[in-house]
Design a protein around this nucleic acid. Structure first.
Lengths: 205, 205
DNA sequence: TGTACATCAGTGAACGCGCGTTCACTGATGTAC
DNA sequence: TGTACATCAGTGAACGCGCGTTCACTGATGTAC
């Protein structure tokens, strides 16, 4: 994601090739280092090695960039979850772990994904909301599959997916935010999530 | 909390009486309205009806004010939890509900309490960490009491308190942050927390 | 293959703004005698 | 009870700063002929 779309690197520095994604990468790295709320567009551009005005060729304004960051993150999350499904998993806990791992590796984006006030939507159409729904749809499809396989009790898949999503999100938040868990090795967190999820799934099966 | 400590209101506007708490109240209200990350000291003072320099008679700088906000919030949370204990409760779920209600009513402070980057401690001594430990100590004492009463299996109370705290915090975070749950009536959230906690306690008893 | 030109995607100077912080000041209050 | 004075807790002007955004510009690239 941090490599240029031009691939060859033959583009001159002047015409960057994929400045849009490079800016998002810078924003993500800076958010990780300094905190999401201290992000400035000028610093993002500086880090991407470009003048601060250059960003306006790719985003209408600062909020647009931040929103794009959240949208791109939701797309990556969706990919990770789709990969779990495609790999033939039949366990909800695999989805939960995919979510956990994504959050652990993209803690900075995570803030923008769920804390709307950081990049207030302003308009009637909220692209982050749409991206969020797309990711949740992956979980819904997975729930439908598990029901078809008899791994999950029948019932409104929307409702089950919502509850499951919330549970996954909540458990992940604990590991990201609770001071006592922050330094925990990822493998240990993964094991806890798995055992909790087995208990829950037993209840839903 | 928004009333002056002087009580009588006889103090002139010039000598405010309890500007320190008034500033914290303003900060809390503004954080709720505009988002914690957009808080400015000048706006806080403006809202308290005072010049922006006045704040420096009560706080060394902006971060000091934000830290004090988090500390005060932890103290209130501790009081709420102590009240549950003092009322003779023998159920972990009562503590969980107290936590949930506190968070629901103090969502703005909640951010400062757990998101250290908003008011970076800077120094060797972190007053927020201390305040946090004080609040957690209340839960620990409660766990000890439940164990003495035979309501909870014996075991290291520190460990049990930590797990319980994390669970409470995680569940609360779900209700505060997950879009699907944000608009949920508080009573409904309370019922969910209670039923979840009964299940967990059954496992720990 | 060369040339003219439109377009794309950068640059850097400039703007106004609100911010955090400092400062000399002053009005209000409390205390000593 | 009055007066002198120290202290407390405000005021408002001023500072420098980094920010988001705009602008005229220009270099690099792609296309038509």
């Amino acid at each position: 994601m941090s490599t240029s779309l031009s691939g060859t690197g033959s583009r001159s520095a002047y015409h960057h090739g994929d400045l849009r994604n490079a800016l998002l990468d810078s924003a993500s790295a800076l958010a990780r280092e300094d905190g999401a709320e201290r992000l400035s567009l000028r610093e993002v551009a500086r880090r991407a090695g470009v003048s601060h005005a250059a960003a306006y060729n790719h985003f209408t304004d600062k909020n647009d960039l931040l929103r794009a960051l959240a949208v791109r993150a939701f797309e990556v999350l969706g990919q990770r979850m789709r990969a779990v499904d495609a790999a033939g998993s039949l366990e909800l806990e695999d989805m939960a772990v995919a979510y956990l791992l994504f959050a652990a590796h993209h803690g900075a984006e995570f803030r923008f994904m769920f804390q709307r006030s950081l990049c207030m939507p302003e308009g009637e159409f909220d692209p982050i909301e749409q991206a969020s729904r797309n990711a949740q749809a992956v979980l819904r499809e997975f729930v439908v599959k598990l029901q078809a396989e008899g791994r999950l009790a029948p019932g409104d898949p929307d409702e089950i997916a919502l509850i499951t999503w919330s549970l996954i999100h909540g458990m992940t938040s604990i590991f990201l935010e609770t001071p006592a868990f922050k330094g925990m090795p990822l493998e240990a967190a993964e094991q806890i999530v798995r055992s909790q999820f087995r208990a829950v799934t037993a209840g839903l099966a």
